[in-house]
């Protein structure tokens, strides 16, 4: 029992730490690596609960394929720069998100802990987990009997996903109908301009602003200073207003 508890605590800590890393790290590469940590933690917990097959595919498919795909795309697109977190274009959404996240957790905990350990639901009669039979056999059996239609449909789903992915990422040979979806520049560009203006406005004050030149290509965390974040609220509002009018 001690070993199990130990395993759970360690794996759980890795999971939570990884999850927090995914949310909090500013560099997408770090996020992806944190995600791998969580996935491994979950895989360990799967093993702890006897789901050996799932643990294996968790590592192979999730960590091995999906996260690698993420990293591949990050590298391909060259977005492995840290995100600019100084400005929030949607005012108040961070606070709201934290409130909603905490209440989600709180509600779940109330629901889980206030009830006794007995889970509602009946014990399985048709498809029990038999320790004598390896779980691979059990899952395979269930997949190809009870869940055969769902299984076939997922095959179709995967095909559609592959075709869709190919279609989406194909370089279009024709000229697109709308040459520029963002005629006014991206949100990041606008934020950079706002930041610039705020810096210019603040330059009248004693604080020496340390702004870059106009940089429409993207956000640049280096250009921040303390005064910039003061202007946060008003700037964000102005941007969303402009978005709403168009």
């Amino acid at each position: 029992m001690r070993v199990e508890m130990f395993v759970f605590l360690v794996a759980g800590a890795i999971c939570v730490a990884g999850a927090l890393g995914v949310v909090l790290f500013r560099n997408p590469v770090h996020n992806a690596l944190s995600l791998v940590a969580t996935l491994f933690g979950v895989a360990v917990l799967f093993v702890a609960q006897g789901a050996y097959f799932l643990a294996a595919i968790q590592v192979i498919v999730y960590a091995g394929a999906i996260v690698v795909l993420f990293l591949f795309v990050i590298m391909l697109l060259g977005v492995d720069k840290a995100d600019d977190v100084r400005f929030e274009p949607i005012p108040g959404i961070r606070i709201a998100a934290v409130v909603v996240g905490i209440s989600l957790l709180g509600m779940s905990l109330i629901a889980l802990l206030s009830s006794s350990d007995v889970v509602t639901g009946t014990q399985s009669a048709l498809a029990p987990l038999d320790p004598a039979i390896p779980d691979v056999n059990r899952i395979g059996e269930a997949l190809f009997t009870d869940y055969i239609y769902a299984f076939e449909i997922t095959a179709v789903l995967l095909t559609i996903a592959v075709v869709g992915a190919v279609m989406l990422s194909r370089q279009s040979t024709e000229t697109p109908l709308d040459l520029d979806e963002f005629p006014d520049g991206t949100m990041a560009d606008k934020l950079a301009i706002r930041l610039e203006e705020a810096a210019v406005a603040d330059s009248g004050d004693a604080d020496g602003p340390d702004a870059d030149g106009p940089d429409a290509d993207g956000p640049d965390a280096d250009g921040s200073d303390a005064d910039g974040s003061d202007a946060d609220g008003s700037d964000a509002e102005a941007v969303t207003d402009a978005g709403g009018d168009s």
């Binding site: 949607i90 209440s103 206030s114």
Partner: peptide, 27 residues
């Protein structure tokens, strides 16, 4: 708004409300 994140927020808030309903039913 067309902003995915506000949609996600609303969705989560809805989930909270649903959970709240479940908790109410339990108590």
């Amino acid at each position: 708004s067309g902003l995915v994140r506000t949609y996600a927020l609303t969705l989560s808030a809805g989930a909270v409300l649903l959970l709240g309903f479940v908790v109410m039913r339990m108590s």
